[in-house]
Design a protein around this nucleic acid. Structure first.
Length: 1207
RNA sequence: GGGCGAGUGGCGGAAUGGUUUACGCGCACGACUCAAAAUCGUGUGGUCGAAAGGCCGUGUGGGUUCGAAUCCCACCUCGCCCACCA
């Protein structure tokens, strides 16, 4: 009989579907196994062979588990929403909704043809309103619990796709360009650097960010959008990783993406006055019914005096029934005002100050008005007649302005006396900076009001992972996005230049910004300085785009000596570089490993690099009593300089007479065990460089000669010659001229912290400057909004009138944090995506839905006034972040559970799945998918799973117990992808060879987790295999009675070895070697077909069944019925087990090695003893002829493998 | 620049301290055929040799070991992911 794959495959597809053999009993199962694969997005012409590769690999595992007795659930669906699908629809000029229906049919047809054991009854499509209703429901829950919020952010904008892209949808592309100029600074050409000259390429490799779909360079645009607070879960997402049985590379990728770093927040006070604080003269003016010992005044006085300045704080006359003029005169009489005066007022004191200033001769330094009134109207409605008569309440703002260099107004947004309007008006009139804040007590009546000090002495807070280098911070850098730059009324003297710089960087496209080759541009904020809190030094502040707004505090302390970026910047802008950490190595490799239990002897010393007088060679010392290779070393005696010590050591240990000192390269510390001297040494070593003038030399003492030999070595030779880490460091310093030491070590130039280990100093210095230890994550919040059409509308409504009446306390957390926004009530879901003819991106900041009035004009669900619906749709990743939860419940009734709602009342609400079923089937047992989703899809799914658990919706917080990433399919040397146009459609291959052949071929290409190289040849080999198997088995006539298998026959042994191999390989997803084992077995069958029994065939078919489901099912069905089978379908049968006894061999081929080379082999009993093996081996002619009369020096015998004779 | 991974015949790959190249493709020769395809059989790392057999051989250089594709160090090349993360 001939093998016709199509007939067979069509036939079984139908039968399987009818018999529902891949539909587990969802409700009753006792041994559930959820075998999930990433569902495809039906974007292009159809499924491609890359999808099939993934599905086949996952299906084999599922089929294997089914045969091992599990009820396997292997669902499939379509991730049909999203930009991929929309773009494809656009390309072919069809509406996405119409295209979806066409794609759906095509995809399901193709998926059926693959031969996967899909549970067809539980399909789902993300664009189906029944599904996205629940995607929207999840959004609503996120919002109510404060996990969804709106924020304005500069986002990636693709000018071609006309939409916002998430960071991860922007691909960095390399390009080779000619640099505009010689930008590479050439400081510190290392003395030995000639060897590496010519390394600077004339061309420079740069990268630009492009859209992942259309390759257009991405630009930045500011939009207000929805975000999910995934950062709240950063620690859990990171911590749980250790528990997961996932591909290691995926775990590492997630770890890096979350990017935890530990450091400190440190405040740098700004000294923004013309005069040092101690020269200033402060005047406090209290308010109505107050005095200088009232409320915050005493505390405030201490704060000022602590900073060294003088304070004048009069108690104003008649505070209870004030006459402002009288008070002004009183103050004027008591105090003389100058350009160094700073006036701080509270409440009515502000009126006194405003009346007082026009009377002065001089201009004062600063006026700070804390909550000053402008009129006698008060928020609490109380009448204060005494105040109405206190003065005329008319102010000459121009005169006030003229008499103060700097004016600011401090407002409490929760003030219940003075209204904000008045403060706004004052600030406006005075052209003053208005700072709104929340006071400790309303109207700043608490005894401690830190905002006042903050306003007077503003600080810049930075995040650093290296607080140990604080002494080396020689300037601060703010990101261009740093808000305070524009808000501050700092006396920035070059404000125009600064604003210009900020404007330019913000306007720059990503392309422009990077094409400048990472050159460190920036502008100093002239006129202000900050104080380094660790040593009181004033350092400058810069704004530069190498500091990113979204990272940390958007501000850094720059330590050019120990950070490469800061170093580049400092060099370019001529800023000081101060070394504060010296390298430190603890010897960890023998010889000379530091011995913890022995005492440590500190020593000052030198490491001396000595160059030959004519050749490019250097002195290395080969030690005689210990396996050391070093440079010349020695101690520094009292009164000696390092240089002198060097000269002396050179003479003493080498005898060379004319060394010339070139320079000192640096300092390093080493802790090691000095083997000859038998003690731990802690050396503080100067690294010196000498060149010999000539070869003139005297004899050296015998004692010295006994210690070591002198060797002349090239730099390359030195690299492998030197043993101690400190000396290797010295060599690197010499060769590379390490400019910036970024490692840890021992502190120097750091005052009282000198000599401290940098790890310890991180804590100590943070404590010393009252910094806050802080953990920082690289992970950003999840940007949900897409200004597109083809996605689930975000179920939110914005209402102006609700925004105004926020405080009425009936609002959820999300509503309070996002004024005016409210969620569409659950009962109104889904918000259906309307059929919009013109679905193309508008090219504005808005989704096409924003043009559909019928869609966006709605009544507010809270107050019923007219409101506006959100018109953006959500990210596709949200659709796919929870689909695994929906599959098992597709045909089930959703559960209603008690959930706390926004008012923390419990009520029964419907959730998107059936709880009982979910408990049974989730988390997913095995998940297989592409490594390209290592980070985003998997991280988002984990995030939602954690949130669901927290809300009491599910019982697990990790959705995928086991995850394996498959490799990539390569075609023509590059990965198979639509954009490269090298995709292969499986249809034509299935037509030509059958699905079984294609499945098997794909799996045979290489290890499943590593991917494979797809080429047309090669599939022939698989076809041959299937045809041979078909021929052999379909012609199989062996009557069962006659064949009582010889239990120890050769074929029996190979059969059981194959069972073992295939079982283990499938467990490990190593399908390629499983297939090869089956090929070997078939070859054996063919060698002696008459020895093949039904049992053999039955096992062979079951082993092959997961890989080639159709042909095995067909052959199984052809089997003579008198042979009892457990079930009608091979796929429902039991997986064979091997008999360990049958695998055992009686003999083995003993390999004979002589000196490690194979010289002979012979058959020996499996349990041959070493003595016997030796005797047998030495008795062999071949061995005798080589060994001759020599006595073997050593014999190594490895049981069951080999014997090695060493002569 | 950082992280991860890989480098073995003409090709895909196998072997994770013990016979390098399993299995498959390709190629060569042979059988069948008038012939071809298909199929079946034999052979197939390089080199020297008539042969027996020798030597070389897992990116390069070093090391550990009786023995290294495999472990360690340095370097080179390629792939994937990330990238001014303070």
């Amino acid at each position: 009989m001939r093998y016709f794959p199509h007939k067979i495959e069509k036939k079984w597809q139908k039968i399987w579907l009818k018999m529902e053999i891949y539909e587990p009993d969802i409700k009753k199962t006792k041994k559930p196994f959820y075998n999930l694969m990433m569902f495809p997005y039906p974007s292009a012409e159809g499924l491609h062979v890359g999808n099939m590769y993934a599905f086949t690999g996952a299906d084999i595992y599922g089929r294997f588990m089914r045969m091992r007795g599990r009820d396997v659930f292997e669902p499939i669906g379509l991730d049909g929403f999203g930009i991929h699908s929309e773009n494809f629809a656009m390309k072919i000029g069809r509406h996405p909704a119409d295209q979806a229906k066409i794609s759906e049919k095509n995809f399901y047809r193709q998926l059926e043809a693959l031969g996967n054991g899909f549970a067809w009854c539980e399909r789902l499509e993300t664009y189906n309103p029944e599904y996205y209703k629940w995607t929207q429901w999840i959004f609503v829950q996120m919002f109510k619990r404060g996990l969804a919020y709106r924020k304005k952010q500069a986002v990636n904008w693709c000018p071609n796709c006309k939409t916002v892209l998430a960071d991860e949808q922007v691909i960095q592309k390399s390009e080779i360009r000619n640099p505009k100029s010689e930008t590479n600074s050439k400081f510190e050409i290392p003395a030995g650097g000639e060897a590496r000259s010519g390394r600077q390429n004339s061309k420079q490799k740069i990268t630009i960010g492009v859209c992942e779909r259309c390759d257009t360079p991405v630009i930045k645009k500011e939009l207000e959008q929805w975000f999910f607070k995934i950062t709240d879960y950063a620690e859990r997402l990171l911590g749980n990783l250790a528990k997961l049985d996932w591909s290691e590379r995926v775990k590492i990728a997630q770890k890096n993406w979350i990017g935890k770093s530990e450091g400190a927040l440190i405040k740098f006070p700004i000294s923004n006055f013309q005069f040092p604080i101690k020269d200033l003269d402060f005047v406090f003016i209290h308010g109505y019914k107050g005095d200088s010992r009232d409320i915050f005044w005493p505390w405030f006085r201490k704060e000022i005096e602590r900073r060294g300045a003088k304070v004048f704080a009069p108690d104003l006359p008649n505070s209870d029934a004030p006459n402002i003029n009288e008070q002004v005169q009183y103050v004027l009489k008591q105090h003389s005002f100058s350009e160094k005066t700073v006036i701080v007022t509270h409440s009515l004191g502000g009126v006194v100050a405003m009346k007082l200033l026009p009377l002065l001769h001089d201009k004062i330094e600063r006026l700070l008005l804390v909550a000053p009134p402008l009129r006698t109207e008060f928020l609490d409605g109380k009448k204060r007649p005494a105040l109405e008569d206190a003065c005329d309440w008319k102010f000459n703002f121009n005169e006030i302005k003229k008499h103060a260099r700097n004016i600011s107004v401090l407002a409490d947004t929760e003030d219940h006396v003075v209204s904000l309007d008045q403060l706004v008006e004052i600030a406006g009139q005075l052209n003053a900076r208005l700072r709104k804040t929340v006071a400790s007590a309303p109207h700043f009546r608490e005894i401690v009001e830190p905002e006042i000090v903050n306003e007077l002495f503003p600080e810049i807070e930075i995040f650093t992972t290296r607080p140990d280098t604080l002494f080396g911070a020689t300037y601060l850098v703010l990101s261009p996005e740093y808000e305070e730059i524009s808000n501050f009324q700092f006396p920035i003297s070059n404000r125009g230049e600064v604003d210009e710089y900020i404007k330019n960087t913000k306007a720059k496209t990503e392309e422009e910004r990077i094409s400048e080759g990472r050159e460190k541009t920036g502008v100093e904020l002239k006129g202000i300085k900050v104080i380094n809190p660790v040593n009181g030094e004033e350092i400058p502040v810069w704004v530069a785009d190498y500091v990113l707004g979204g990272v940390g505090m958007g501000a850094i302390m720059a330590v050019p000596a120990h950070d490469e970026r800061d170093f580049e910047f400092a060099k370019k802008h001529d800023l000081p570089i101060k070394t504060v950490v010296e390298s430190f190595y603890i010897q960890k490799e023998e010889p000379g490993v530091y011995r913890e239990n022995e005492s440590i002897v500190p020593r000052d010393g030198i490491i001396t690099i000595i160059k030959h007088w004519s050749e490019d060679k250097y002195i290395g010392l080969k030690w005689k009593k210990v396996a050391w290779g070093t440079f010349l070393t020695g101690g520094i005696e009292k009164g000696q300089t390092a240089e002198q010590a060097g000269v002396a050591e050179i003479l003493e240990e080498t005898g060379y007479l004319h060394p010339k000192f070139i320079r000192e390269l640096g300092i390093t510390h080493g802790l090691f065990y000095h083997v000859p001297k038998k003690e731990n040494r802690l050396v503080h070593a100067h690294i010196l460089y000498f060149e010999l003038q000539d070869g003139a030399r005297t004899e050296i003492s015998e004692k010295e000669q006994e210690i070591h030999d002198i060797k002349w070595l090239t730099l390359k030779e030195l690299k492998s010659f030197l043993t101690p880490a400190t000396h290797t460091y010295a060599l690197d310093l010499f060769r590379e001229g390490i400019k910036v030491y970024t490692g840890g070590g021992i502190l120097c130039n750091s005052g009282e912290f000198n000599g401290m280990d940098s790890e310890k100093a991180k804590l100590e210095i943070t404590k010393f400057v009252c910094g806050e230890r802080k953990i920082q994550y690289r992970l950003r919040d999840w940007l949900i909004s897409r200004q597109r059409y083809w996605g689930p509308p975000i179920p939110m409504i914005f209402c102006e009138s609700c925004k105004k009446s926020l405080e009425n306390s009936k609002f959820s957390k999300g509503e309070l944090e996002n004024p005016g926004w409210t969620a569409v009530p659950e009962k109104d879901l889904p918000v259906k995506l309307p059929y919009v003819k013109n679905f193309r991106p508008t090219g504005t900041d808005k989704s096409p839905l924003a043009t559909v009035k019928k869609f966006y004009k709605v009544r507010c669900p809270k107050c019923k006034s007219w409101a506006r619906r959100e018109t953006d749709v959500s990210d596709t990743f949200l659709d796919s972040a929870w689909y695994y939860l929906r599959y098992p419940s597709v045909k089930m009734q959703n559960s209603k559970i008690k959930m706390q709602n926004e008012n923390s009342k419990s009520k029964n609400i419907e959730i998107p799945w059936n709880s009982e079923i979910t408990k049974k089937w989730t988390p997913v047992n095995m998940y297989i998918g592409g490594a390209e989703h290592s980070v985003l899809h998997l991280l988002y799914s984990r995030f939602l799973a954690m949130a669901f658990k927290d809300w009491g919706l599910t019982h697990f917080e990790e959705p995928f117990t086991k995850f394996r990433a498959h490799g990539l399919l390569i075609k023509d040397g590059t990965k198979m992808s639509k954009s490269r146009g090298n995709v292969v459609n499986p249809d034509e291959y299935i037509r030509a060879y059958g699905a079984d052949a294609l499945r098997m071929y794909l799996m045979f290409l290489g290890p499943f987790e590593q991917g494979g190289d797809f080429r047309d040849d090669g599939i022939r080999g698989i076809t041959r295999f299937l045809e041979r198997a078909y021929k052999l088995i379909s012609n199989f006539q062996n009557p069962i009675s006659k064949q009582i298998p010889n239990s120890k026959s050769q074929i029996q042994k190979i059969l059981h070895q194959t069972i073992k191999k295939v079982t283990e390989d499938i467990e490990n997803l190593q399908y390629n070697t499983a297939i090869s084992a089956l090929m070997i077995l078939l070859n054996k069958f063919e060698e002696n077909p008459s020895a093949v029994t039904k049992e053999h065939v039955s096992i062979f078919l079951r082993l092959l069944a997961p890989v080639a489901p159709f042909i095995t099912e067909e052959l199984w069905s052809m089997f003579p019925t008198n042979y009892k089978l457990q079930a009608t379908s091979v796929h429902k049968n039991k997986w064979p087990e091997y008999d360990p006894k049958l695998i055992q061999e009686d003999t083995f081929e003993l390999v004979v090695q002589i000196n490690g080379k194979v010289r002979d082999k012979f058959e020996a009993p499996i349990d041959v003893s070493e003595d016997n093996a030796t005797r047998l081996t030495l008795g062999r002619e071949r061995v005798k002829s080589i060994v001759g009369t020599l006595k073997p020096r050593r014999i190594i015998f490895v049981p069951k493998r080999l014997i090695n004779i060493v002569i």
